[in-house]
């Protein structure tokens, strides 16, 4: 990482035959700050040269699929668990049972079991929303506490959520509501909610960024994204819905056919350690780490305050279930917009 492209080329040209340090090609699907911090700390402790590129989890999955027969990537860290499960389904990723599995929370291990150990949970975050305190105060609206409150006509045009066709966050929301209410009720609810939605954004975290900058009143997102905006100083208040909510399991997978399998395993084990996961608060990432010994940021939404549903990742990660829900969403909700 420290080597620049030109300098590395020069150095390699001038000094042929010198054995290079081990290499690791990493796709990182989290915030660039935490990506860079992780790589920096890992390189300090290991004799492995990490090449990191940051791609959103959708882009990463598309890339892995396109490269399936001759992968160029060794390890994929972070990004919501759904595409990791899909990749595992497609056998694009490599089964690996880390010795550190025993140190992890149950939800992280379940994620691994669901995927036959082709992936593992590294952090989790619950779905909720952030609202702009100034806008709601100016309009005299009572801050919504529950999913049901969001359909209140006073919030017309004040809500943003991503389009589940493009965003994993919004798909998690869709699946959550279906599990919480039942499918037909969930779509009836979404149609009602649609009356208040001003825009279905493309990116999952865009709604709360819009709310932070006063472009909308409420953004339905993963709560850690809302916390990040509040932490920047924007007037954002974070809400966990009273009826209960779903969550994502940010995951990590080794790519099947990786050229640097040993280096990938080294990083994999390290990334599951409490030491590595404790870096997240430092990079202002507010997800909950998967290692039981790791400490979440004190600003992270406390789990006790959140009513989590028993989200069925296996069922709602299935390709046909996803396709059916997305088609129905496009016909009933997206088309009506």
């Amino acid at each position: 990482m420290k080597h620049t492209y030109l300098l590395a080329g020069l150095a390699a040209g001038l000094a042929p035959g010198i054995a290079a340090a081990d290499e690791l090609n990493l796709i990182c699907s989290a915030d660039i700050v935490i990506c860079e911090l992780l790589v920096e700390r890992f390189e300090e402790g290991h004799d492995i040269d990490v090449n990191m590129v940051r791609l959103s989890s959708g882009e990463a999955y598309a890339k892995l699929r396109a490269e399936a027969r001759n992968p160029q990537t060794d390890l994929w860290w972070a990004g919501s668990g759904d595409p990791h499960l899909q990749a595992a389904n497609d056998k694009l990723t490599h089964p690996y049972e880390s010795a550190r599995l025993s140190e992890l929370h149950d939800w992280a291990v379940t994620q691994a079991e669901n995927a036959e150990y082709r992936t593992v949970g590294v952090y989790s975050g619950a779905l909720g929303w952030g609202y702009n305190t100034e806008i709601l105060a100016a309009k005299g609206i009572e801050p919504p506490k529950c999913w049901a409150d969001l359909t209140d006509p006073s919030l017309k045009g004040e809500i943003q959520i991503a389009d589940p066709n493009s965003s994993g966050t919004a798909y998690t929301a869709l699946a959550t509501l279906v599990q919480l209410m039942g499918e037909d009720e969930a779509f009836a609810y979404l149609a009602e909610l649609g009356a208040n939605v001003s825009q279905y954004t493309k990116s999952g975290s865009a709604p709360v960024k819009a709310a932070a900058r006063g472009e909308t009143g409420i953004g339905i997102v993963f709560m850690h994204d809302a916390v990040a905006q509040a932490d920047e100083g924007f007037p954002i208040e974070v809400v966990a819905p009273c009826e209960g909510t779903g969550y994502e399991v940010g995951s990590m997978s080794i790519i099947d056919g990786a050229y640097n399998l040993e280096a990938a395993k080294t990083f994999y084990d390290w990334a599951l350690s409490a030491e590595a996961q404790n870096l997240m608060p430092e990079a202002r990432s507010f997800q909950l780490p998967s290692n039981r010994a790791a400490v979440a940021s004190e600003k992270a939404p406390a789990l006790e305050d959140i009513k989590l549903i028993d989200y069925d990742f296996a069922e709602y990660g299935k390709t046909d279930v996803r396709q059916r829900l997305l088609d129905r969403w496009s016909k009933e909700i997206g088309a009506a917009f």
Partner: peptide, 24 residues
């Protein structure tokens, strides 16, 4: 470019898009 960049050869625009996506 966004599909062609790799861990080793990352381009400025792809990097900037990442920053924008994260609100930086």
């Amino acid at each position: 470019v966004i599909f062609l960049v790799s861990a080793k050869y990352n381009m400025a625009t792809a990097y900037i898009v990442g920053l924008v996506e994260n609100g930086e």
